[in-house]
Design a protein around this nucleic acid. Structure first.
Lengths: 220, 220
DNA sequence: CGTAAAATACCGTGATTGCGGGATATACAA
DNA sequence: TTGTATATCCCGCAATCACGGTATTTTACG
């Protein structure tokens, strides 16, 4: 269906500066019936040269080290994703710090494996990636979740009434008191009173502060 | 070291309303040397009753269905995490919609598996969870990444100068023009001019709008 | 060296805001 | 019934803001 012609083999390349490690990975896929690890590079520069030479079509999946000489794997992901968005890139690294994880994923990496992964895990990750999924090492996934789902205090709403929330929302949208009054078909004075109450409840004393507090604490 | 006494067996419970499915999972771990699936429940209410009864210590890991009669698995995660934050909860469901994924992870779920998982995958996920990692199905992980790492237009800064950014920041902090002038040891008129330029560049015409735009688009 | 951009400073005016009052009506709970 | 909360409305005034000018000095850069 849908014209997705099943490929006989997932074409995979690897960028890894440690010669021995690169060879080991390459060899572990030799003779693999569904994965052909057809090219490997010691750094990003050679990868890009090869792609631009047009000698061979780009791969389906790329395993990318992060700690590379010259251009880092993080920067490599960014540039490769810009040039060839279709390639699924799996980071393949020893680094587990939030900053590298964040930047790699920001730049468009589809997966993030640690170098202690078994050949089976790498194999599964390649299949996952080519199917549009995101193979992420559970330890890394934990950090990603922590980055975004940090247990936030359940959105203190400062006891704002629904009317006050409504007006706060319009304030955030940039409307003046007069415009808000028009929008809600009430008098300017009413809006003014509500805003006074909002300021008191939020413990602020200017529109700017109220808007900042509302946006920062997700009050709207 | 550190007093972490290795447990001989990972104690795991499951909440799943489909009797047959629940039995199947339970049976697949019967006689497992390191995982004891010691209790199973058809809904959250019975789970909580059992926990409160104190008959047995809470488990290390809980497999939690989402589509449950009565209290949903999402709500169950929230309440259980509040009561017993130490329990690692793995969602175990057919649902793949962003909203359920988001809410489950928000409420503190450590993992998210699909029901088509193999026994080996579940086994690995339980071990991952108890070690503090986050076993997430790659398809789900992809959605999580999309939720947060959507290729955002590279932070348009509207050509603000560094001084203008500085002043915008102070504006967001709720300072008045006069206060900003004092803070920066410049005249009120200078600040006024900068703010005029900021408004022009951001295409807004009030402090509220500028603050909202700055916060929403991460200009600061 | 020259020039453009940035930062600085000033003026005036009308609009808007922040905030101090106070008032009325309605609804709901004690 | 009597409060309490919510929403509505009004007044006034000092402070602040938005915005139209103009102009000087500093900085950056070819």
């Amino acid at each position: 269906m849908k014209g997705t012609s099943k490929k006989s083999s997932v074409r995979t390349w690897i960028v890894e500066d440690n010669d021995m490690y690169r060879q080991t990975v390459a060899e572990s896929f030799e003779g693999h019936p569904q994965i052909s690890l057809s090219q490997n590079f010691p750094n990003c520069e050679e990868l890009f040269d090869f792609i631009e030479s047009g000698t061979e079509n780009p791969p389906d999946v790329l395993l990318m080290d992060i700690g590379l000489p010259g251009m880092s794997g993080i920067e490599g992901v960014k540039q490769l994703k810009e040039a060839r968005p279709g390639i699924q890139i799996i980071m393949f690294t020893v680094y587990q710090d939030n900053d590298r994880i964040f930047r790699a994923l920001c730049n468009g990496a589809s997966g993030y494996l640690l170098k202690n992964s078994t050949a089976e895990e790498i194999e599964k990750a390649i299949f996952d990636a080519v199917e549009g999924a995101a193979p992420i090492n559970p330890q890394i996934a934990k950090k990603v979740l922590e980055m975004f789902f940090t247990v936030q205090p359940p959105a203190n709403d400062y006891g704002l009434t629904s009317r006050e929330k409504e007006i706060l929302e319009l304030l955030v949208e940039g409307f003046s008191k007069k415009k808000i009054a028009g929008q809600l078909y009430v008098s300017f004075h009413t809006v003014d009173s509500h805003i006074k109450n909002i300021y008191t409840k939020l413990q602020v004393n200017s529109g700017n502060e109220a808007v900042a507090k509302a946006l920062r604490e997700g009050l709207i």
